[in-house]
Design a protein around this nucleic acid. Structure first.
Length: 434
RNA sequence: GCCGCCGUAGCUCAGCCUGGUAGAGCGCCCGGCUGUUAACCGGAUGGUCGACGGUUCAAAUCCGUCCGGCGGCGCCA
């Protein structure tokens, strides 16, 4: 009797067959003569039916008293039935094995508050909603790696312990590094990536970044996963094309391979399948004009706040780019536009529907003197960036890259209302436990 | 760094304004029900009202301080 995944049953691969499943009982309903067990394995959730006359009375009563999150091994026949929550159910023929959990599982099918669920995060991740999100998260990263590998990018890594800021304004976590006080957790692989392209060419990384911003919004984490790409011989337009194709590939793969999970989260897979590159592109100046027509005034040279970013995303129904931000609102290494030095060759990709920025990137400064000037202008100490400046002395070429906020992308794909559910154990200014 | 809200049973909350012996629903436990969908029905259990201090004959309720949490701004991915 084959032991099968619940997902394969839900996908219709075993209709009418007798199979065995193994999983955790996440809910249980009884109607006297028939019991309904909701069973979850790593792949999905299925309803199992157990009529009283199907098994010995002793077994029936034992199942009836089984505490939530007990482990069950069940044999049964797969039936297509509209009354089952996912359209298919397992009609139990034999209760093969039971491993009883303790009574009193804290998370019930009723309402819980945010604080309670975060305090019980180690258990809440078992919830079918969290299971669906985390499975999509895995698919997002799998699809990204596949696309990057197929297009000639090499995965590589940068250190998490660093000594100098790479983004001017953002706040750093300081750590006690063998007693040294000037060591921090990284915010981006940016400076190291620019060193690595001269040995590996087109590269990417998927790694955590740390920001000690005391942000209290539904879009921020103190520890988030950063998918960063950097490549030589590429300008602003080239790197935007990479972003377009990468995000499109990820969305298509998730829509094709995880439609059930997307639907359970309120995202229609068709909304992802219809995406095609290139995404719309507007300049910072054009964005200001759109906002002005909405009655939102922003002085030229100021960065977008959420007050500007959120309404702008309502003008689009796909991700879109905002390019050519004024010098000063982006980090020092962004290359000023030779045709218009008051703006940089920078670009942010914003998700629609009020989700906002998911990618930030652009073309980097490749000239030594220009880079040194910008470091000084930003009030930074050139000595902190000595090795980074070195890169412009030997074989410097035009190069570009971007950083994608993995949880931001997942948040939009999964239609979440808070970024914390895009990661199993979120870290923010108030929470590092569990 | 700033603004706002919340802490009462295992959970979600009412009670607080107008001070007078602690409430509901759900869960757990017991019983019933042969198609449930957050199942339902009956019963039982369950609380130093976040902590400390003050006012008062009397504080969950009024005042102060602290702790914890949530939402938002700024900043960013």
């Amino acid at each position: 009797m084959p032991l099968v995944d619940i997902a394969s049953i839900l996908d219709g691969e075993h209709d009418g067959e007798e199979v065995t499943i193994r999983g955790w009982m996440y809910n249980h309903r009884s109607s006297g003569g028939i019991q309904f067990l909701m069973v979850r394995d790593g792949s999905g959730v299925i309803q199992c039916t157990l009529p009283r006359d199907r098994v010995p009375e002793e077994t029936y009563k034992r199942v009836e008293k089984l505490p939530l999150e007990s482990v069950v091994e069940l044999r049964g026949v797969v039936k297509v039935d509209e009354r089952a929550p996912n359209g298919r159910e397992l009609s139990i023929t034999e209760v093969v094995n039971l491993w009883e959990a303790q009574p009193g599982y804290p998370i019930t099918r009723k309402r819980h508050g945010v604080e309670f669920l975060l305090d019980h995060r180690h258990l809440y991740i078992r919830d079918p909603k969290m299971q669906a999100i985390l499975r999509i998260r895995s698919k997002v990263l799998e699809a990204a790696r596949d696309w990057l590998r197929e297009h000639g990018y090499t995965e590589t890594h940068s250190p998490s312990f660093i000594t100098a800021a790479c983004e001017g304004g953002a706040t750093l976590f300081s750590v006690d590094y063998f007693g040294r006080k000037d060591v921090y957790l990284t915010q981006s692989w940016q400076l190291y990536a620019e060193a690595l392209i001269y040995t590996l060419g087109k590269i990417y990384t998927i790694a955590p970044s740390f920001r000690a911003e005391k942000s209290r919004t539904r879009r921020h984490l103190a520890e988030y996963w950063h998918l960063e790409v950097e490549e030589p011989w590429t300008d602003l337009w080239g790197i935007m094309k990479v972003g377009d194709e990468l995000v499109t590939h990820i969305c298509h793969r998730v829509a094709e391979e995880m439609p059930r999970e997307l639907k359970s989260l309120g995202r229609d897979p068709k909304e992802l399948l219809r995406l095609e590159p290139p995404y719309p592109r507007i300049t910072y100046d054009e964005a200001l004009e759109i906002l002005r027509k909405d009655g939102i005034e922003l002085e030229w040279g100021d960065d977008f706040g959420w007050r500007e970013e959120e309404p702008l995303t309502r003008h689009f129904d796909t991700p879109f780019w905002v390019t050519h931000f004024p010098i000063g609102v982006k980090a020092f290494y962004h290359k000023p536009d030779p045709k218009r030095p008051e703006v940089t060759l920078s670009a942010d990709m914003l998700a629609p529907e009020g989700y906002g920025e998911i990618i930030g990137g652009g073309q980097r400064i490749d000239d030594y003197d220009e880079l040194l000037t910008r470091i000084v202008e930003e009030g930074l100490n050139p000595e902190d960036y000595s090795w980074y400046l070195d890169l412009r002395k030997w074989g410097s070429v035009p190069h570009s890259g971007f950083g994608l906020g993995v949880e931001r992308l997942i948040m939009w794909i999964c239609h979440l209302d808070h970024i914390r559910d895009a990661i199993p154990f979120p870290r923010d200014v108030r929470r590092v436990f569990p």
